[in-house]
Amino acid sequence: MKTKLSYNLDFLAGLLMICTGAVGFYMALDYPYGSALRMGPGYFPRVLAGIMIAFGVWIGLRGLRTQEPVKGIWGWRPLFWVTLAMVVFGWMMERAGFVPSLVALFFIASLAGYNIRWKEVTILTIVMILFAWGVFVYGLGLPYRLFWW
């Protein structure tokens, strides 16, 4: 059976490793290599990046032979919303305070799910914000502004 390259398990894994290794190697060229006796900061990274590329080639080629496909589907949609929720939370914590950041986190994260019921999300947000306030701000004494004022 022929698998499309974009679903070829090992080919993709190998490709990812080769890219990681290549970027790692390229960047490490700026760091002095030194010698085995006196290793510079570039020695270990370059060796590792080299090993990485070798693994990538081996696993990638194996993928072309075995043609094993990725199981299930790619969940790009939940991935997008979940990571966006983290990013927005981080961005807002420095600007808007604890409560608004958490509201944003809950509403954005909920978009990652199925059958979104906004009334439920609202209640969950309120309950969990109270809980988080109790645990983190009151209990652990973390010094966060609740709002932007």
């Binding site: 979940v82 909920s110 439920e120 988080a132």
Partner: peptide
């Protein structure tokens, strides 16, 4: 659908 945003909250804070 209630759990995962709450887990995410712990992770984020």
């Amino acid at each position: 659908r209630w759990l995962f945003p709450s887990i995410l909250m712990f992770c984020a804070i």
